[in-house]
Design a binder for these strands. Structure first.
Lengths: 340, 340
DNA sequence: CTGAAAGCGCTTACAG
DNA sequence: CTGAAAGCGCTTACAG
């Protein structure tokens, strides 16, 4: 059982040429019905599978997509950001549905990750997903584009960056959640999350947040914005700084669920009741969000739709079509952390 | 920039033969130091990458591992069981560290998934991960073994099944968590989770559970075991049946965290206080477990270690070594759902 | 230390 | 509808 059958073995058994075997297995209309049936039966019996390396080498395409997940710094443990884990799941599914294989790889944003997969013909295109200082890898994205690599990225649309981006309408999401908080009667809303070009997605959420404040005649108090990046721990620390700042606040609008969860921990430790004294809102709607206490009001980024859009766009790009930047609609998910 | 450079292009520029280029790029000691340096410089400049398809075809190995995640039935949405998602993350990391690529694929347990990846030379070996009715795919596992496919699986050791398994010591885990529950003064402990050969991991946990009861002179009441498989919803329903059964119980030992979380929902709906009236324990220690209210006492299966063991074992198997079944040690994680 | 050559297992243009 | 043949881009035994 050890030696794998080749198309020549099948040709021999079927009494035809190897070319005909290849055609038959690819369901070429050129092949006689009876011949095809016979060949396919033999192939099945021999447990024959087309050698992908040979066929890819010949056709110069791999029917494989590479997903690059980058994180900086790489966390020690296997605790990948749950939002990206969920995206990974959804992308895997979407690839399966399209008959593509998916190569998954972690990358340090600092590495020379850019075109390895496509240049080595392991993949027909790339999906880029992750976080890290955007300013750091902006130039790599430009490089990728210049090399003509087929790729799509998940993230924020950045002005002046000529590349296709699939992302969430973060501005809209930040606006809607803030309006919800305001509707619950809060007026002094702190924003926990970095607000700079280093983290464009958060920045867009912040801009939406500010827009909502203004449209309700509320002041944007810059002292109520505290930097925080990605982790629960960062959220916890930002909330501690907020509490110690002695600024008046009755609500927290966090740039992500993880930050919100960290903030809730800080609030509890400081004896602040949620939502009575301080309401808390997140962003992402990761699985954990419905199990916090109280359950977290947040903005859902639909990872199922996002994964499908990323894969669909990439496949169109590979097939030579023009694709354009697209934003998915954020969706307010009201639970109890902002009051009923 | 569009046409990819080949080793012939480099040979031409360097004024050597293509064979020498190939050797130099593989750091063969046969190549003159100066020649090697020169060739590598040119390769870098041309942005040359070895074509994986060609090199795999030639060497007949792919430096790629395939991860098959199977689920039956496949859920509609992207909500993969969080435990497996975490495993996926850890396996991805472990592969990176070993210089292997990882192909990820979802499979219906019912499909003809078995040897596609290895037979088509896309991967050197397989990691099998997932759930579904074990009885259904037992024969496929046997088939895989007979075909000489290189694979390791995550799961329970099953008697009489001659294949390598990496798993958690589920018996021990079930025993420890039950002893903890007993130590908190509970005597009527319900077990929520299937206890049959269709779900061997749960069955082992149940056996450990029963062993703990017996060693503390408690009766094993079969009416307190309720079937539930994998989902929060299943846990919710099992707990409802338990409550409606009018059996006396003061604790729930769930076969997984998701089941435990569903059970907590049912208890809350029926006005039962956790942990005062009923204590609840889970299994897995998924990320959500620390955010439930009250936080869930559970048994941790360390996915980081598990992922590394799976990858390490598979690589040894591929390299021709003998490997043997191994169990990772479960770890009691005490939070508040079983009392302080 | 280097080169010429075979061959990995396919796909497909070409000829019939 | 079928076959003989070229060629995808490498790696490596063989000869020097």
């Amino acid at each position: 059982m050890k030696d794998k059958a080749t198309s020549f073995d099948i040709a021999y058994q079927a009494g035809v040429s190897q070319s005909t075997v290849s055609r038959a297995l690819r369901n070429s209309p050129l092949v006689n019905e009876a011949t095809r049936t016979k060949i396919q039966a033999i192939a099945k019996e021999l447990n024959y599978k087309v050698d992908k390396n040979a066929s890819n080498l010949r056709t110069q395409q791999s029917d494989t997509i590479a997903l690059l997940l980058f994180e900086d710094p790489t966390s020690d443990d296997s605790a990948i950001n749950p939002f990206f884990l969920s995206m990974l799941g959804s992308i895997t599914r979407a690839c399966s549905n399209k008959g593509y294989d998916l190569l998954v790889s972690f990358q340090q944003a600092s590495n020379d990750w850019h075109a390895d997969f496509e240049d080595s013909n392991k993949a027909d295109g790339l999906i880029l997903l992750g976080y890290g200082d955007f300013v750091d890898f902006e130039e790599k994205l430009v490089q990728l584009t210049e090399q003509g690599t087929h790729f799509v990225r998940w993230g924020a649309e950045v002005e002046g960056l000529p590349m296709v981006t699939i992302g969430c309408d973060n501005f809209q999401g930040g606006k809607e959640i803030t309006e919800h908080i305001i509707k619950q009667g809060r007026k002094n809303i702190a924003f926990l999350g970095s607000a700079s070009t280093h983290a464009p997605e958060f920045f867009d959420r912040y801009k939406g947040h500010c827009a909502a404040l203004k449209s309700h005649q509320l002041v944007v108090n810059p002292n109520l914005q505290f930097n925080a990046l990605y982790t629960e721990e960062a959220g916890y620390k930002a909330a501690c700084r907020l509490i110690e700042s002695n600024e008046v606040f009755d609500a927290i609008c966090a740039a992500s669920d993880l930050i919100a969860i960290g903030a809730m921990r800080a609030l509890k430790e400081h004896g602040k009741a949620i939502p009575d004294e301080v309401t808390v809102a997140g962003f992402d709607d990761i699985a954990v969000a419905s199990f916090t206490f109280p359950p977290l009001t947040t903005v859902k980024q639909d990872t199922k739709i996002a994964g499908e859009m990323l894969v669909d766009s990439l496949l169109e790009l590979i097939s030579g079509k023009e694709i354009s930047t697209a934003l998915i609609k954020p969706e307010l998910v009201i639970r109890k952390s902002c009051g009923e």
